[in-house]
Simulated assay, not measured.
Amino acid sequence: MREFSAIGYRSLRKIACPVSDLEVFVGGNGVGKTNLYRALELIRAAADNSLGLHLAQEGMAAAFWAGQRRSGPQRIVLEASLSNPQARGVYRYHVEVGFPQRGTAAAFDLEPQVKEEWLSYDGGGRQVRLVDRRGPSVMARDETGRPVEVDIDLLASETVLGRLEDPGRYPMLDMVRRTLLEWRFYHGLRTDAASPLRRPCPAVASANLAADGANLAAVFATLAHIRQDTSDLDAAVAEAFPGARLIVPPPERVASFGMTFAEFPDRVFEPEELSDGTLRFLALAGALLAYRLPPFVALNEPEASLHPELMAPLARLVTRASERAQVWLVTHSHPLADVISQSGAGEVRTVRKDAGATAIEGLSLLGRYAEAEED
């Protein structure tokens, strides 16, 4: 991802920012850090056609910017720019959501409705619209580059990005959708007694960690018995828990793991016996050291339930992951942000409130950071 912007979503009155390989957003409670994270989740949701569902679950009235605004209908506007790894061009995806007009057919009165949606490509010369949706009308460029009207049964709450699945005829649209679908968001890594992290899982080779961590044992087994290299994982565990070892037995029908500790080197502690902090750190290690990382990884307050002494090991997991993927980190922890800042691996941004709206220190209205403008 190159750039991201959001207008009218919760505390994000109007914000646009470039995205580096590692972005760390730090700030106090209530400044809107999590809203930045959620807005990115909504862009990903557009790719699997669940954007309307996500906003309906939040409640559209609650999802709108609550402060003063210009006259006219309320809108939530989300946009992301993606690099093309095979070329020098940039794809830009844009979607606007609002309430239906009263009496609109095939729409409930208070459901989220896509008002405008487009995908463009800029190859360095001029920007070309690959997809353009205005209400029920959809134009898309086919495999020859020719614009055609698309005959598609599209509900007002659905996205073209999520519904128009025809990679042969619309290859660029399909590439953007598949890229967004690979994004991973980690904020629901539960550690309670019924957590999926505490259970064995089917023994299926797993390239990366599921959003709920349910395949953590398979992620560890993939590193240990398919890649046959757990050096980074072992080093992370040893730094976080001196004298401890992660035990990953060869899987049969299910995959499992356990830990030994310096005080009890011959006793393997199963996941259900591990403390919340230990288990959460292992889950984050699985997310950030997996066999194959997604192109974009977002973490929301990963420091929750971790001892302060684990901030430095966690920071090193994050910086290591940023060598293989883009990482977006939202945190309350200044110690965690400080270690990352001292490493020089990423950019640490301070988030604050300005007249009720989320703001990022050093970010101009044009969507550029002060240090970049100085350069």
Rank of each mutant, 00 (worst) to 15 (best):
R227T: 11
P196S: 03
F264W: 06
L288K: 06
D212F: 11
G277M: 06
R292L: 14
P249H: 07
L288D: 01
I226C: 08
P294G: 10
A240Q: 07
H225C: 05
S275R: 12
S275E: 10
D234I: 02
P251N: 04
R280P: 04
G213R: 12
V254P: 00
Y186K: 11
R253S: 15
D212M: 04
T230G: 03
D212K: 10
F241E: 01
S231F: 01
C201K: 01
R267C: 08
Y186P: 02
S195F: 10
P196F: 00
E252S: 15
E182W: 01
V237Q: 05
D232G: 10
P196N: 03
G243N: 07
D276E: 13
T260G: 06
V254G: 05
P200G: 10
G286C: 03
A287T: 11
W183F: 15
A244H: 04
W183M: 12
A285W: 02
A262Q: 09
P294R: 05
E239C: 13
A262M: 06
P295G: 12
E263P: 05
T191E: 07
L180Q: 07
G243R: 03
A290R: 15
A193K: 11
P250V: 11
R190Q: 12
F264G: 00
L180T: 09
F281A: 05
A194C: 00
L282D: 07
I226M: 10
P250A: 14
R245G: 03
R292W: 10
S275T: 13
V268S: 03
A210E: 14
E270S: 13
A193M: 09
P250I: 00
A203Y: 07
R198I: 05
V268P: 00
G213K: 11
C201Q: 04
V219G: 13
Y186G: 01
W183I: 02
L279P: 10
T191P: 03
R199G: 06
G188K: 15
L197S: 07
L216M: 11
I247L: 06
D234S: 12
D192T: 11
A210G: 09
E252P: 00
A287I: 08
A224M: 09
I226G: 01
L293Q: 08
A221Y: 02
R199V: 06
V237A: 04
R267M: 14
P295C: 08
P271Q: 06
R292M: 12
D266P: 01
D234G: 02
A214P: 01
P202R: 14
F264S: 14
D192V: 07
E272L: 08
G243T: 05
E239R: 15
S275H: 11
A214V: 00
F264I: 01
E270A: 15
L288N: 08
A193P: 00
L233N: 00
P249A: 04
A217R: 03
L279M: 15
T222N: 09
T222Y: 02
S256V: 07
L282H: 09
R245E: 11
L180N: 08
R199P: 06
T260H: 01
P242E: 08
L274Q: 05
S195E: 02
L288F: 10
A236R: 05
P294C: 10
Q228I: 03
G188N: 15
G277I: 01
F220H: 01
S256H: 11
P196E: 06
R227V: 12
P250Y: 11
A203C: 14
V254L: 14
D212A: 09
P200A: 13
R245Y: 01
H187L: 07
A236K: 05
A214T: 11
H187N: 13
A283W: 00
D232Q: 14
A236T: 04
